[in-house]
Structure formats: C-alpha cells, structure tokens
Amino acid sequence: MPKSKSHSLLSPDLLGRLERLELVSRKVFRGRMKGERRSKRKGESVEFADFRQYVPGDDLRMIDWNLYARLDQLFLKLFLEEEDLHFFAMIDASDSMNFGDPTKLHVAKQLAAALGYVGMCRADRVTVTALGPEGRRAPVLRGRSNLLKMLDYLDSIEPGHNVSLHDGIKEFSLRTAGTGVAVLISDLMDKAGYESALRMLIGRRMDVFVMHVLSPEELDPPLRGDRKLIDIEDGDEAEITINAYVLEKYRDTVRQFIGSVKQFCSRRSIVYIPVRTDTPVETIVTKYLRERGVVR
C-alpha cells in the first residue's frame, strides 16, 4: 500500500502517540481471548490482586498455605485477569458526510483509524465499519500488524450509502455478535432521526459513545442572498432568501438540535462528543477523547 494512503489518515507522529493510549470501557465485558487489558474481574493471571476467604468448592490450588500456617484460616489468592475488549467504530457514509474541507467523512475515517489502532495495540478485537452495504466487508482485526488492512478498508469507503441510521445500526446488529464499546461517528443528519438507532445499541448492552461531526460551515454558514437549497441525500429543494435574521434563526435551530442530542445521550449514559472538522485529529484524540473518558 502506498505510504500516502496511510499518511492521509494517520501521520507517523500520531501513530507513535496512539501506541501509548488505551481504550476505556465503563462496563465489564467478558472477553473471548486473553488480551493486555486489566479486568475488574478476578482471574488466574500472574499479577496478584487480593485475598478472600475460602468457600467450600473453591479451587484448592489457589489457597495460600503460608497464610494458613500463620493464621490457621484458609484464604484464596486472587489475581487480576487480562482480557480483550471488542471495539466497534461505526461510520456514517451518507452523502451529507461528504461536505466540508476536510470532509466530515474524511475526519470520521481518521477518528475510526486512530481509535482502532489504539485497540489493536492493546490486543483488543477491533471492527471498523461503514453503515450500509460496505459494512458487510468489514474485517475483525487484532494486533497492530493489521493496521494496513484497516486503512485499506477505510480507504475503500465512499460516500453515498444513504441508509438511515436506524437501518444501518439494525443491519450492524444483525451481522455482529457480542457486545463491547461502540462508537458512532456521524453528523446525525437523518430525517428519520437518530434516537431509534442509539436505542438499539443500548439494547445490545453496548458501552455507547457518539462522535457528532459537523463542519464550521454548517455551524455558521457563510451565505447571503437568494439561494436554492437542495438536500444532498433525497433531492428536496427549497428556495430561500438568506439575511441576518434567517442566519440567526438557523444558528438557533442548530444549537437546539445539538442541545437535544446532548440531552438524549446524557439521559441514557451515552457519552456525547462534539467534533468540528477544523480541529486537528491529534487534538481530538489526545485531548478531547481523554477528557471524555474514551481513551487514557
């Protein structure tokens, strides 16, 4: 794969910084394979954690006989268990994401690649997938040696998969088993709404994060005069005269929309993360995502 392809998403400097990070889960998931993650559950690894009193039926091999000789009581040695995590990054690849400079889709790919690489460096299972038909080809990856395979898949994602968020998440849920950390990267611009899609992820007992990607032009449009507005996804048209009053009403509508998304997420323990496309991905990952508990 040409170097330029990987560099367009993750710079060598950022790759080095990502290797020092770790994905964070607010829930305890039972991993399928041993990984490099310290679990809150107690297991049988080599790192000691604590003692507890013996209960009939416990494994006699775990009894601390030295402690028994001193205290004349049976105690079991507990150890921290290492487990893997399954990380899912779901990218909205609808036409509305193909807007801005850089486009929202490009930024979404960068964020998915960065978080996916963090997971692979910690031996987590990683699935980076587009919502819609492209998602059927998404591989399950493990280990940093799969970086180029992930970047190849991301590079193949093109805008235009105008499935609703509901249908995209439904298809994802049907083809994906298990649970884990789920990050939806989207502008949430769906006439059918985003609520049912997020409810499905919660119903799967996922640890859900929403990265709401918007461009500066959407937050504060540099438009004036008579315009014909065309919905890029369904072709709906509207003619409008844009003046200071209309722009202020638009900004107020955008603020209300963002506020409603934040409130919806807050009430359901979903972490909401606003992303502006003019913010460097390095800043988003190493500063904002750390502050919001996605990585550490």
Rank of each mutant, 00 (worst) to 15 (best):
I157E: 01
G100M: 06
H106S: 07
F172N: 02
M90Q: 04
R142P: 00
A108G: 15
I157F: 06
A89V: 11
A108Q: 08
L165V: 11
A130P: 01
G116N: 09
M189F: 13
A192V: 00
V140T: 14
R137N: 12
M150F: 08
T127L: 14
D101G: 01
C121H: 13
G180D: 03
L154N: 04
A182D: 00
G168F: 10
K109C: 10
V126I: 15
A138I: 12
A112C: 13
V128D: 02
I157H: 05
R122L: 01
V163T: 14
M97I: 12
P133Q: 11
G168T: 13
Q110D: 02
L151I: 15
T176P: 03
T129N: 01
G132Q: 05
P102S: 08
P133K: 14
T127E: 03
G119Q: 08
A138Y: 08
L165G: 03
V107Q: 09
T179S: 15
G160I: 11
T103A: 09
L115R: 04
A114F: 11
E171N: 13
T127I: 14
F172S: 02
R125V: 07
A113W: 12
L115N: 07
G160Y: 08
R142K: 14
M120E: 05
D155C: 00
R122H: 11
M120D: 05
I169R: 06
L151K: 03
R144P: 07
A130M: 09
M90V: 12
A123N: 13
N98H: 14
N162I: 11
V128G: 04
L141Y: 07
I169Y: 04
G116D: 07
D155W: 12
L131D: 01
E158K: 15
L141W: 08
L115S: 14
R137Q: 13
S173I: 13
G178Q: 09
T103L: 07
D167E: 15
D95V: 01
D124A: 10
S156E: 10
A192M: 02
N162H: 05
D187Y: 04
K149T: 15
A108W: 10
V126E: 05
A177M: 08
F99S: 05
L154E: 03
T179P: 00
D124V: 13
L115P: 00
I91E: 01
P159C: 04
I157D: 01
H166S: 06
V181H: 05
A112L: 11
D124R: 13
T127W: 04
N98F: 13
A108N: 06
L154A: 05
V181G: 02
K191C: 00
A114R: 12
N98Q: 10
I91N: 03
D190E: 00
D124M: 11
K149Y: 00
R144A: 15
A138L: 09
K149V: 14
H161Y: 06
F172E: 01
H161C: 01
A108S: 15
L111E: 05
G180L: 07
P159T: 12
S156K: 07
S145Y: 03
P139K: 09
M150S: 03
G168H: 08
R142A: 00
N146G: 00
H161F: 05
N146K: 15
V183G: 00
V140W: 01
P102V: 14
